[in-house]
Design a protein around this nucleic acid. Sequence first.
RNA 1: GGGCGGUUAGCUCAGUUGGUUAGAGCGUCUGCCUUACAAGCAGAAGGUCAUCCGUUCGAGCCGGAUACCGCCCACCA
Length: 723
Amino acid sequence: YIVNWCPRCGTAVSDLEVAHEERAGKLWYIRYPFENGSGYVTVATTRPETMLGDTAVAVNPSDERYRAAVGRQLVLPLLKRVIPIVADDFVDPTFGTGAVKVTPAHDPNDFAIASRHNLPQLKVLDEEARMTEAAGPYQGLDRYKAREQVLGDLRAAGLLEKEDDYALNVGICSRCKTVVEPILSKQWFMKMQPLAQPAIRAVEEGRIRIVPENYRKIYLDWMYNIHDWCISRQLWWGHRIPVWTCRQCGEVMVSEESPGTCSKCAGGSLHPETDVLDTWFSSALWPFATLGWPEDTDDLRRYYPTDLMIMGFDILFFWGARMIMMGLKFTDDVPFRELYIHALVRDAERQKMSKTKGNVIDPLEVTEQYGTDAVRFALAISAAPGTDIAFSYDKIESYRNFANKIWNASRFIVMNLQKLAPEVRNRVSAATEAASKDGFEPLPTDPTLALADQWMFSRLATITKEMEEAFADYRFHEASYKVYHFFWHEFCDWYLEWIKPEITRTLGPEDSCNAWANLLLVFESSLHLLHPFMPFITEELWHRLPNRGDEVSISITPFALVSEQAANSSAESDFENIRSLVVAVRNAKAEVGLQKEKVSARAASEDAAILSLFNTHRQTILMLAGLEALEVTSGRLEAGIHVTSAFEFQLIYEKQVDHDAERSRLTKEREKLEAAISRVKKQLGNRNFLDRAPEDVVRKTENHRTDLETQFQKVVESLERLG
RNA sequence: GGGCGGUUAGCUCAGUUGGUUAGAGCGUCUGCCUUACAAGCAGAAGGUCAUCCGUUCGAGCCGGAUACCGCCCACCA
């Protein structure tokens, strides 16, 4: 049979191990004269040296041009061998000259043609890709050297009609990149069709789930079109193929131990097979062979099938598919229930990393430079299912910065904790311990801090839940993004800033320690959420928390510490109101170039709840927004900036209000609102929308319109007041 | 030749069943060395979601076509 032969490795390789590469080549047109001397047939070939092994020329039976020639004899140039013209459907009349040389020993198609027409097979290339004795005068030449000589001789004989440039796909050995040679050889094959059937069913019936989904199709496609597998290798390592051949009668015996004598003729001279199995054959046995199979061991019962197998898509066929087939064959069960295909890390140019290309990035160097956690996090957050990861130092650097941020946050917390008087610290850690029984919830604190605590715990509960869902679906990029944003932009930027005055002040014995306890609970919970992505830094920081110094490891503690009961939508919306006021003030200050100035502001609302909210949190707002004073008044403002439809504010500073600038700002805002309102109105005016859209969408849209219109009204009034 | 994926901000990419104003990191610009963090803080600018057609009350998302780009599979000399 024809196999792919790697002349460098000196072994057969399977179809899967052959990579294809487009190379510039030529198509040579060679004349094969008729035996009787009258004329010739021109064949086109990309491999002229193999003509030495030609045993026929084939044409399509329906090809008018050659109909009369079928059955006639040609003289093979150079070697003067007489070969027939045969008709075979395989030949594409539109390609080349419509006539193809048949080299049964060095081309799988030609091999097929030859077997259909009973043509001899003549091996002209040996296992080192040198010309054999059958090649006559060319014996011993390397295949490429032979090509040149053959071409030269043909040209000299006037039989080379022409040559065209042609891009051809050459097969190369995936291990050593040598161009493989299709060669006639005796090898062991595995019949795959019967093995594939159950493997197809297992996936179709959902006994194995492939994630992401698109790989399921790729897997099934490959299984449907499976080819027999050449499993023998002429290598010196590997599992030996357990076969003995009788030297007397040729009987082939498969056995675990040497049979000793021939089972057929009882002869004592047996020849053990020297070929070994393809390494992937052995790998396919791994899931059960490692557990003691074929014995019915405890391990096998306990760990087979396993829940989850993870691999890169590049070995889905090599290993994944074959484990499934072998597993089903030998254990009657799937080897694993889920197969997760992870992303491949490619270089910055999206090239697959390879040693020969020299674009390999050594992970040890990168982790040395940026830290293991940074690399791990960068990869996790880049791992959107079904896509590869382009390696980027910038990206890793930004998550190194994140690790740094975590470190600093911890430093800040622990540092201030150390400053507490020992008895106060003890009360804090006691409060922390007491809270941690069935999921953390905020401990009671004074009203200003309570809002921050309730908001933070609520957010924590949401993030925890979202992360758990993301993990369950192998959406690691989503889980890591959530915790990144949570920790940096909610915990650090808002929560820590909000409670900073509390944790930097000196507590007396009469003070409640609950604010401190809450901070520690949130921080500890955050470390737990971060731990899967940043195991080292979280482990280190966790042990610095009160009562955690002597514990074994954060990795064996629960992932979710916060209680679901902590979800608190009213705290979230109160917090949002304050946040939007703070952001709007900062914004306004920057706009008028007073970023570093301490200015005053006046906030107004017609909503008593808002007014009371702002009054309660006045100190916090002043600190976060960088204000000197905040006046909270009921009603309307003359030149207010509308943050939401519920409230507005204005900055109060020395500089006179520039009426023109103010007018132009308001006019711009009015235009924006007008556009938004007209969009919403159009939508709400659409009968179809009202009839067909879900109720809650319609209601939301209506609320949105009311909101916009209120804002619009206020802007218009402000403009009128400006005159 | 068949199949799959991609095309979203200057760059690298998210965007899970269609639903208010499309997000992040890096870069750029402005102001800050504010006693956790300048590897940082507070702001800003920047997008006709490749193009066209369709489905829908409504499309970055669903369907079809086109154009580039990438990958996998394949026995066209």
